[in-house]
Simulated scan of single mutants.
Amino acid sequence: MSQESERGERFFLYFPWLILVTVIASFGAKAVFDADGLPPLTPLHHFHAVAMLAWFFLFALQPTLIHSGRVSLHRRLGQFSPLIVLAFIGFAIPISLLNWGRMGDPLIITANGVNLTLFLGLYISAIVYRRRADTHKRLMTYATLTLMGPAFGRIPEIFDQSPVLAVPFVFGYMLAPLVRDLIVRRSIHPATGIGFAILFAAIPVILGLSGMEGWASFLTSVLGPPAGGV
């Protein structure tokens, strides 16, 4: 393997672990330093947290297994990944409904719905391209980044700052694979370009829908009025 290839592979080896650490640190810090800001926790929240953490851990572990030559174990664990996906989505839906009933915030439920839809699309595409490692790992990376909104959102909450503080983290992580490609490949891999474009385009869609009065009325008609009204 050339020096350039080794440098490029180190990114896909360590970036997933950075994502895992970010998730653990942001939610952990929220629980320790801003516990009063947490919603009422139920067993459902704990099951959801375990299922999500299982996904982030699997995502971090898989490239490490490839790097260490344990390809067979990588494939076996990959075959179980749909079960983890079904679990965390199965818990995410009622959690989102609980949040809607408690807060009635169109932004949160819209972001959750859009991001879960994008995750499924990118995740399924990554499975389809599982035999093309260069495409597979990029699609899995951007699929996982669609799930990072709640973690990034906890950062400004911890410091009692505007949600805008999360924006640099969102864009920084979204841009990282693209910058890596430009540095190492001298061009953007198609899967990187598609992944970045999808996540970038989702931002105005989420914000635009969330700010529409008609969308809030539609959510209320489908999900019911929140406890405190919209």
Score class of each variant (00 low, 15 high):
Ser2Ala: 06
Glu4Trp: 08
Gly8Trp: 07
Arg10Tyr: 14
Pro16Arg: 10
Ile19Trp: 04
Leu20Lys: 13
Thr22Leu: 03
Ile24Val: 03
Ala25Tyr: 01
Ala29Gln: 11
Ala31Phe: 13
Asp34His: 15
Ala35Ile: 06
Pro43Phe: 02
Leu44Lys: 09
Phe47Arg: 13
His48Phe: 00
Ala49Glu: 06
Ala49Thr: 11
Leu53Lys: 13
Ala54Gln: 12
Phe56Pro: 10
Phe57Glu: 06
Leu58Glu: 10
Phe59Tyr: 15
Phe59Met: 09
Leu61Cys: 08
Thr64Pro: 12
Ile66Gln: 13
Ser68Glu: 02
Leu73Pro: 12
Leu73Gly: 08
Arg75Cys: 01
Arg76Ile: 00
Arg76Asn: 05
Leu77Lys: 09
Ser81Val: 12
Leu83Ser: 15
Leu86Pro: 11
Phe88Glu: 14
Phe88Cys: 15
Ile89Ala: 13
Gly90Asn: 10
Ala92Asn: 08
Ile95Cys: 02
Ile95Ser: 06
Ile95Ala: 06
Ser96Phe: 00
Ser96Gly: 10
Leu97Gly: 01
Leu97Cys: 02
Leu97Asn: 03
Leu98Cys: 00
Leu98Glu: 02
Trp100Ile: 01
Met103Trp: 08
Met103Asn: 15
Pro106Ile: 01
Leu107Pro: 12
Gly113Val: 00
Val114Ala: 06
Phe119Lys: 08
Leu122Val: 01
Leu122Tyr: 14
Tyr123Gly: 03
Ile127Thr: 11
Arg131Lys: 14
Arg131Val: 01
Asp134Met: 15
Asp134Ile: 13
Thr135Ser: 05
Thr141Ser: 03
Thr146Ser: 10
Pro156Lys: 09
Asp160Phe: 12
Ser162Trp: 06
Leu165Ser: 12
Val167Thr: 14
Phe169Tyr: 08
Phe169Thr: 08
Phe169Ser: 10
Val170Gly: 06
Phe171Ala: 14
Met174Phe: 13
Arg180His: 13
Asp181Cys: 02
Asp181Met: 01
Asp181Pro: 11
Ile183Ala: 12
Val184Pro: 12
Ile194Gly: 04
Gly195Ile: 08
Ala197Thr: 05
Ile198Asp: 02
Leu199Ser: 04
Ala202Val: 00
Val205Gly: 12
Val205Gln: 07
Leu207Asn: 05
Gly208Thr: 02
Leu209Ile: 00
Ser210Asp: 05
Ser210Arg: 06
Met212Asn: 09
Met212Pro: 03
Met212Ala: 02
Ala216Tyr: 00
Leu219Val: 03
Leu219Lys: 09
Gly224His: 04
Pro225Glu: 08
Pro225Leu: 05
Pro225Cys: 03
Ala227Asp: 02
Ala227Pro: 09
Gly229Leu: 02
Val230Gly: 03
